[in-house]
Amino acid sequence: MQIFVKGLTGKTTTLEVEPSDTIENVKAKIQDKTGLPPDQQRLIFAGKQLEDGRTLSDYNIQKESTLHIVWR
């Protein structure tokens, strides 16, 4: 499925993911596209910070959802 990651600059990155992907895995995909290391990424969805060990489905993140990224 496709999801979007929007940064503070307003730039949006598209990712191809599975609902079973962990947040850690998603951060690795973001690094592949942007070069930003996972330890500098904070992902937010529906006002919650996403924890590395959880999956996208744990947070009810579905296709075409938009996550927000904040740099540490």
Rank of each mutant, 00 (worst) to 15 (best):
D32V: 12
L8Y: 13
R72I: 15
E51H: 08
K6C: 11
P37A: 11
F45D: 01
I23L: 04
K29D: 02
Q2Y: 13
S65K: 03
L15G: 00
W71K: 09
T22S: 08
G10E: 07
Q49S: 10
P37Q: 09
G35N: 05
T12P: 09
I69T: 03
G47I: 02
S20K: 08
D58L: 03
V5I: 14
Q40I: 09
L50I: 04
K27Y: 03
R54D: 05
K6F: 08
L56S: 00
G47L: 04
I3S: 01
I44Y: 15
G35L: 04
D39I: 08
T14S: 10
Q31F: 15
T12I: 15
Y59A: 02
K63H: 15
F45W: 09
F4I: 06
T55Q: 07
Q40T: 07
Q40P: 02
S65W: 03
S20Q: 09
L43E: 00
K33R: 09
I44L: 11
K6N: 06
L43W: 03
S57V: 06
A46D: 12
D21M: 11
S57R: 12
A28G: 09
K6E: 08
I3F: 01
E51F: 07
Q41F: 15
T55F: 05
G35V: 02
H68P: 01
N60G: 14
P19G: 07
V5F: 06
R42C: 12
D58E: 10
P38H: 10
P37C: 07
R42G: 06
S57Q: 12
T55Y: 05
N25S: 14
P38T: 14
G7D: 15
E16H: 11
S20I: 06
D21P: 00
R72V: 15
P19Y: 06
L43Q: 00
L43R: 00
P37H: 13
L43D: 00
S20L: 09
Q62A: 10
N25T: 15
L36Y: 11
D39H: 12
G7L: 14
T66N: 04
F45Y: 12
R54A: 08
Y59G: 01
R72L: 14
I23W: 01
T55K: 10
V17T: 03
T14Q: 08
E24R: 14
E18F: 14
D58M: 05
I69K: 01
D58F: 13
T66S: 05
R54S: 07
L56D: 00
T55P: 04
T14A: 10
R42F: 13
R54M: 12
S65C: 05
T22N: 04
Q31S: 12
Q40A: 11
E18Q: 09
I30H: 02
R72D: 14
G7Q: 09
I69Q: 04
E51M: 10
I61K: 00
E18I: 11
T66M: 10
R54Q: 08
L36S: 04
L50M: 06
V70L: 12
K27F: 03
E51I: 08
K33Y: 09
K27V: 02
L67I: 15
D58P: 00
K63E: 11
P37E: 07
I69D: 04
E64R: 09
D52L: 05
D39Q: 10
D32Y: 12
L8T: 09
I61M: 03
P38F: 12
W71P: 12
T9A: 12
D52I: 05
K27S: 02
Q41H: 08
W71H: 12
